[in-house]
Amino acid sequence: MENLSLFGAANWMGILSTICIVLCLYCILTFFQHLKNNDERLIKQAKLAAVFCLAVALLVPAFYNLYIYSEMMR
Rank of each mutant, 00 (worst) to 15 (best):
L66H: 07
L35D: 13
A46Y: 03
L42R: 04
K44W: 02
L6I: 14
F32V: 12
V22R: 07
L66K: 03
P61T: 01
L16I: 12
D39H: 11
I43C: 10
A55Q: 08
S5F: 05
E2I: 04
L35M: 11
Y67W: 09
F32M: 14
A57Y: 08
A9F: 01
E71W: 00
Q45S: 15
Y26S: 14
F63C: 15
T30A: 11
A55I: 02
E71C: 12
H34D: 09
C24D: 11
Y69P: 03
L66I: 11
L58F: 03
E40K: 08
E2N: 07
K47R: 13
C27T: 07
R74Y: 05
F7R: 01
H34E: 15
L29R: 09
E2A: 02
A10P: 00
A46S: 15
L54Y: 06
I15M: 07
Y67D: 07
W12R: 03
Q45D: 15
H34Y: 04
A46N: 11
N38M: 11
L66M: 05
L66V: 06
F52N: 05
C53K: 07
A46R: 02
N38D: 12
E71N: 08
S70W: 02
K44E: 15
G8N: 15
A9W: 06
R41D: 14
F63I: 14
V51T: 11
N3A: 10
Y64G: 10
T18Q: 13
P61K: 02
F32P: 08
Y69D: 13
Q45W: 02
A62N: 00
I19S: 02
R74P: 01
A55H: 03
A62E: 09
E2V: 02
L59T: 09
I68H: 06
T18Y: 04
L23C: 04
A62T: 13
Y64F: 11
C24I: 01
A55Y: 06
I19M: 00
Q45Y: 06
G14Y: 08
S17P: 06
V60Q: 00
L66R: 03
N11D: 15
I68P: 00
K44I: 13
F52W: 06
L6R: 02
M73P: 01
I15C: 09
A50V: 07
M72E: 10
